[in-house]
Design a protein around this nucleic acid. Structure first.
Length: 721
DNA sequence: ACAATAGGGATTTTT
DNA sequence: TCCCTATTGT
C-alpha cells in the first residue's frame, strides 16, 4: 500500500495530521463533521504501512463500542486485511482485558464479575440498609453518584477527608463498605475497571514497562471526554519514547457531569511535550447557515481552544424557528413538517427530532402516531439491561460460578419457588458471619430451616447443581438454551400476562442468538462464557450492527452526538428546559449546555429547525416559559421565524418580544399567567396559575430560585414587572 | 406471593 | 403526568 492511497481523499489539514512525524505527539482539534474518524483511521494505516509499525504496537482508545467497531471495520477495509488482535477498543473494554490478563496482580478473583449501574445500585442500597443509613436523608442515587465520582477522579475512600460535610462523611462510610463488599465478592463496577487497571500498572513497574514498550503509539478518540483516571492512565503508559495522538473537540464536551474533564485537553501540551496541535475546521456536513449559527452560539463560551467551522458548499436554507403555543403545537408543527418532507420523497429516517430530556418525546410520539409515521425512540432499556435478559444471564453466572452472590440474589426466588425474604435474609446473615458466599451459606443453613423453606431452598440448590453438571459439555449457545428451559424462565415468561406481545420470550430467544454471535467474534484470550457475560455488561446494546430503518429518529441531544441527519429538529428551546434549570446558574454548567446546543445544531446536514413552546405541560403541570437564551445567541440573519397567528398568550408575547425576556414594566396590576413578578423574599418568578379574585386570590408562582409556591395575593405583595 | 395503592421524584447516561 | 418503589391488604 502506498502513501497516496492513504492521503488521496484528505484535505491539507487532515493530511498534515495523518502523515505527521511518527515521533510527534499530537492533538487534533477536530470540529463537528470535519472528518476526525477518517484522520484517526488513516493515521493508523499510515503508521502500519509507511512506518513499519506492527499492529501489536498500537493502542487505540474510544469511548463507545460503536466507535471502536467502526474504527476496526474501516481500518480493515482501508488496509484490505484483518487486524486481528490489535488493541482497538473502549477504555473500559481494554481495561477489562488488562485486568483479566493480570487478575491476580490486580488483587482480583479470577472469576470477577462486572457490575452495571443497576447491580451497583442494589448493592449500595443493601449495604445502606444494613447500616441503617436513612435513605431519605441520603438518597441512594446520590451516594452511588458520589462513589462513582470519586473513582472517576482516581480517589479512594482513604484519600479524602470528609471535613464537616455530613453527606460526604456518610457517603465515604458507604464507599468503604461498598469497596470491601466488592473485594470480598469479586465484583468490579465500571469506574473500578479504570481505576483498578490504572493502579495495576502504577504498582507493577515491570508490567508498566512492558506495556510502555509495547504501545509505541497511543491514539485516543473523543479526547475531550476523558476523565481524570483515563487521563492518568494514558499518562502512565507514556514514557517519552512512545507517542500520543489525540483527537477531540473541546466544543463538544458534554459529559462533564459524568466526570469528563475538558481541561485534559489543555494539559496535553505540558504533559506530552512537545505537542503539535492541528485544527480541522472544514466541515463536510452542514450548510453555511447552520455553521454560522453554530459558530456564533459557541462563541459565547469562554475558555475555548478556539475553532471556527467553515464549508465551501454554500449557505443553504435559513434555519426555521417555530414559536409554538404548547408542546402539542410544537409536536404538531414538527411532525407536520416531517410529513411534508416525506410527501416530497424524503425518507423518514433522514429526519431526527432532538430534545434535551427524554420526557419531551411523549408529545412527538403522540403526533407521530396521529400522522401514522413510523418512528423509533432511542434511549430506552438496552438489550442486556432488560430484566428477562439479566435473569437469564444470572443463571448463566450461577452455572459458571455459584459463588456469584449478585447472581444468587437475583435468581434465588425467580421464577418464584417459595423462598421468601425471611429465608434470604437468614442466608445473608449466615454468609456475613461465616465470610462465605450466599450459595454456600444456603447449603449450610438449609437443614436448620422450617420444612417448607428448607424444601424450597433445597430445590433451588439442586437445580443449580444439576445445571452446573449438565452444562459442562455444552457450548455457549447450548448452555443458554438449556438454562432457559431448565430454570423455568421461558415458561414463566410464556405465562406472563403483562407481556401480551411476548417480547420477553422473544428477547430470551434473542439471547441464544447473541450467544451464537459471540462465539464467532470471541475474544480468544478469555474463557468463552466469562467473555460473553462480561461483554453483556460492557456492551449492553447487544445490537450486531445499526440496522437501517425507515423511521423518524427521536433521541436526546446527548445520544445524537456523533450522528448526522439531513433534517434536524432541535426542540424545546426554552429557558429552564434548555438550558436546564439545574444548570443555568452555574457558568461552567451553562457552558456545557451551550456546547450541547452546539452539538445539536451541528447534527444537521441540510436543514435545521428550532422550536420552543410558550406553555409546556411537564411533570403534571403547565409551565410558562421564555425562549432559550441560545436563540438570542443565534444570529437573526440565519433565522426564519415562524409564528402562529393566534397565540394563546399573545398579550404576553408581543411580536418583537420573544427575544426580550428582560423586564419591561407594565402598569396594570392584573394577574395573568406568564407575568413576571417579584416577591420580597423569594425574588423573581413567573405566575403559572391563579384562582379567586381580588384579595382572596391565590397565585401560584414559579420562582427562579425558590421553587414553586402558592401565595395569597393579598399578603404576597407581589410587584409586577 | 401478589395485587392494589400511596408516596416521591422527575436532566443528560459513551461504559 | 408518569414511573418506580415501598407498603398494605388479601
Amino acid at each position: 500500500m502506498n502513501l497516496s492511497e492513504i492521503t488521496q481523499d484528505l484535505n491539507p489539514h487532515q493530511s498534515q495530521a495523518v502523515i505527521l512525524d511518527d515521533r510527534q505527539n499530537a492533538l487534533i482539534l477536530a470540529g463537528a463533521g470535519s472528518g476526525k474518524t477518517k484522520v484517526l483511521i488513516n493515521r493508523i494505516a499510515y503508521l502500519l504501512t509507511q512506518k513499519n509499525i506492527h499492529t501489536d504496537d498500537i493502542l487505540a482508545l474510544t469511548f463507545t463500542n460503536k466507535a471502536s467497531k467502526e474504527m476496526r471495520e474501516r481500518l480493515e477495509v482501508l488496509l484490505r486485511r484483518p487486524i486481528g488482535s490489535m488493541w482497538i477498543g473502549t477504555f473500559h473494554g481494554l481495561a477489562h482485558r488488562l485486568l483479566r490478563a493480570h487478575a491476580a496482580k490486580a488483587g482480583l478473583d479470577d472469576k470477577f464479575q462486572i457490575l452495571d449501574q443497576q447491580d451497583q445500585f442494589r448493592i449500595i442500597k443493601r449495604l445502606m440498609k444494613e447500616c441503617q443509613i436513612d435513605e431519605s436523608k441520603f438518597p441512594i442515587r446520590k451516594v452511588q453518584w458520589f462513589i462513582n465520582q470519586q473513582k472517576d477522579n482516581g480517589v479512594r475512600h482513604t484519600d479524602i477527608e470528609a471535613g464537616n460535610n455530613y453527606f460526604v462523611k456518610k457517603s465515604l462510610e458507604v464507599y468503604a463498605l461498598y469497596e470491601k463488599h466488592c473485594n470480598n465478592n469479586g465484583l468490579i463496577d465500571f469506574a473500578e475497571l479504570l481505576i483498578r487497571s490504572y493502579e495495576l500498572l502504577k504498582n507493577n513497574s515491570e508490567l508498566l514497562q512492558h506495556y510502555q514498550l509495547r504501545f509505541k503509539h497511543i491514539l485516543v478518540d473523543e479526547f475531550q471526554d476523558t476523565n481524570e483516571v483515563q487521563y492518568k492512565w494514558i499518562k502512565l503508559l507514556f514514557n517519552g519514547k512512545n507517542t500520543v495522538f489525540c483527537v477531540g473537540d473541546d466544543d463538544q464536551s458534554i459529559y462533564g457531569w459524568r466526570g469528563a474533564k475538558i481541561e485534559n485537553i489543555n494539559k496535553l501540551s505540558s504533559d506530552f511535550a512537545p505537542l503539535e496541535t492541528i485544527r480541522l475546521e472544514q466541515n463536510y456536513r452542514s450548510t453555511g447557515n447552520i455553521l454560522k449559527a453554530s459558530n456564533a452560539l459557541i462563541g459565547n463560551n469562554s475558555q475555548r481552544m478556539g475553532k471556527s467551522l467553515w464549508t465551501d458548499s454554500g449557505d443553504g436554507d435559513l434555519i426555521d424557528l417555530y414559536e409554538a403555543r404548547t408542546e402539542i403545537d410544537e409536536a404538531n408543527y414538527v411532525v407536520g413538517t416531517i410529513q411534508k418532507h416525506i410527501n416530497n420523497g424524503v425518507s423518514a429516517n433522514q429526519c431526527a427530532i432532538l430534545y434535551r430530556s427524554n420526557a419531551q418525546s411523549r408529545a412527538f410520539e403522540g403526533q407521530l402516531i396521529k400522522y401514522n409515521i413510523a418512528y423509533i425512540i432511542y434511549g430506552g432499556l438496552r438489550f442486556f439491561e432488560r430484566a428477562e435478559v439479566k435473569d437469564a444471564l444470572c443463571y448463566l453466572r450461577m452455572m459458571e460460578n455459584s459463588a456469584d452472590s449478585v447472581a444468587f440474589e437475583r435468581v434465588v426466588n425467580f421464577p418464584t419457588r417459595g423462598i421468601g425474604n425471611a429465608t434470604v435474609e437468614k442466608i445473608r446473615e449466615f454468609a456475613n458471619q461465616q465470610q462465605t458466599n450466599l450459595f454456600q451459606a444456603a447449603i449450610s443453613i438449609a437443614p436448620t430451616l422450617p420444612t417448607r423453606a428448607a424444601n424450597a431452598l433445597n430445590t433451588f440448590i439442586k437445580l443449580i447443581e444439576q445445571m452446573q453438571d449438565e452444562a459442562k459439555n455444552l457450548n455457549l449457545p447450548e448452555k443458554v438454551s438449556y438454562l432457559l428451559k431448565q430454570s423455568g424462565l421461558i415458561e414463566h415468561y410464556e405465562n406472563d400476562k403483562a407481556d401480551k406481545v411476548g417480547s420477553k420470550v422473544a428477547n430470551l430467544e434473542e439471547l441464544i442468538a447473541a450467544a451464537e454471535q459471540y462465539q464467532h467474534e470471541e475474544d480468544s484470550e478469555m474463557d468463552e462464557t466469562t467473555g460473553f457475560i462480561s461483554s453483556a455488561s460492557l456492551d449492553s446494546n447487544g445490537e450486531t450492527s445499526a440496522l437501517p430503518t425507515q423511521n423518524v429518529q427521536l433521541m436526546t441531544i446527548h445520544s445524537a452526538k456523533g450522528l448526522e441527519f439531513p433534517y434536524v429538529f432541535l426542540t424545546g428551546m426554552e429557558e429552564d428546559l434548555f438550558p436546564s434549570r439545574q444548570s443555568k446558574d452555574e457558568p461552567h454548567l451553562l457552558d456545557e449546555e451551550r456546547r450541547l446546543c452546539y452539538v445539536g445544531m451541528t447534527r444537521a446536514m441540510k436543514k435545521l429547525t428550532l422550536s420552543f413552546a410558550i406553555k409546556r405541560f411537564l411533570h403534571g403541570q403547565s409551565f410558562y416559559s421564555y425562549p432559550s437564551r441560545f436563540l438570542k445567541e443565534t444570529p437573526s440573519e440565519c433565522l426564519n421565524e415562524i409564528k402562529q397567528k393566534y397565540g394563546a398568550t399573545q398579550q404576553n408575547y408581543q411580536k418583537d418580544d420573544i427575544f426580550n425576556q428582560d423586564i419591561h414594566p407594565q402598569n396594570d396590576g392584573d394577574l395573568s399567567i406568564g407575568r413576571t413578578v417579584k416577591h420580597a423574599k423569594f425574588g423573581f418568578g413567573t405566575v403559572i396559575n391563579f384562582e379567586g379574585k381580588g384579595d382572596s386570590a391565590r397565585v401560584q408562582v414559579r420562582f427562579k430560585t425558590a421553587g414553586t409556591k402558592w401565595l395569597i395575593s393579598a399578603y404576597a405583595n407581589l410587584q409586577f414587572v
